[in-house]
Write a protein that binds this DNA or RNA. Structure first.
Lengths: 184, 184
DNA sequence: ACGTGTCTATTCCTAGTAGGAATATACCTA
DNA sequence: TAGGTATATTCCTACTAGGAATAGACACGT
């Protein structure tokens, strides 16, 4: 990706995006709050960065003057700047949009299925279905909290996307589960 | 994940899995061939490791004696060992099965949609649909080549999983595309 | 025969990323 | 008032990404 000096990572832009959502709030957010927000929303579409990385990215964003620290006697509170918002907009529609990256440990194991029995594989798939259901419930919680107000309209759309994703994966996996029973 | 000394990464096990598929072949595979194989099959379910990483993982696998180098006067050719196969089996059913990790640059951008127009978002989604179709076609090619013979039965199942995945994502994205038209 | 290009094969380097541990303060509660 | 949990940030280290560099082999046209 040739990350030359000034170029920011996708994760940095994702965080910048979270700050834009919060731009009405003059207080700004601390790195810690940003992490919580990321865990709550971002993680369904992009890896939620580690705490240490949040602060690293905030430092970079700060150097580029895409964020500023609102004066505070306590912890550092970040707000997006005018420049930051423009930059995000530029990146959104002129930056490279890569292809989704998937790391699917369950599919990976099934791929090596011949080293195991259909029973073992079946129970793994069932475990995966449980995980999917739990995650889906979490995301449904997020979706319910979003509502439909204009500010979060697109976030709500993406949440619906995520829910449909989980549902279709669950269907597919259940189908495979059945198919396993028809095997030796 | 607490990667203590001896523990191998998921990527290492994925490569070990590819070597197991090839275990009938006394010649073994070079790192280069392994990379090609990974690009051809693995990449749909797990990030295809960079060349440099292939060699790094092969060194680790070799140190653990999970692979051996078949004698060759030319390039190094690797084969899975008895021990390696056992280890893979152990890992498959006693290792932690993490949750899938997704990095979805399109969903991420849509999440910040309010910084842009529905037209811009729509054309981004259309681009994504094209990408999906192209990828799907690639995967269909892989699937066709696999057939249904016992050796690759599970690999074929996973390919079907992948195809269904692409189809459902395409449907979901097309749905969102429509929904955008109904917006301001 | 000769340069150019592509494929095979491997190593090296650098920057990015993960993620636990460490530190420190504050607040709540048993 | 000790101990747990939440807030807030930094540090360290190992892992990962991925391009660049190197180098031999083979092919193809001139």
């Amino acid at each position: 990706m040739s990350m030359v000096n000034s170029a920011l990572s996708t994760t940095a832009y994702a965080l910048l995006g979270l700050l834009v959502f919060d731009r009405e709030n003059p207080e700004g957010m601390t790195g810690y709050e940003l992490k919580q927000r990321a865990d709550f929303t971002l993680r369904y579409y992009w890896v939620s960065p580690a705490m240490s990385q949040i602060y690293t990215e905030l430092r970079k964003l700060s150097e580029a003057e895409f964020v500023e620290t609102a004066p505070s006697d306590g912890p550092a509170r970040y707000r997006v700047t005018e420049l930051g918002e423009e930059q995000l907009q530029t990146w959104l529609f002129h930056g490279e949009v890569g292809f989704p990256i998937l790391k699917h440990p369950v599919a990976l194991r099934l791929l090596m299925g011949r080293l195991s029995t259909p029973e073992q594989l079946g129970s793994m798939l069932e475990g995966h279905l449980d995980d999917l259901a739990a995650r889906r419930a979490d995301l449904q919680g997020v979706r319910d909290m979003l509502g439909d107000e204009h500010r979060v309209r697109y976030a709500a759309m993406v949440a619906d996307w995520g829910l449909a994703y989980y549902d279709s994966e669950a269907q597919i996996v259940a189908g495979l589960r059945e198919r396993l029973d028809g095997m030796d």
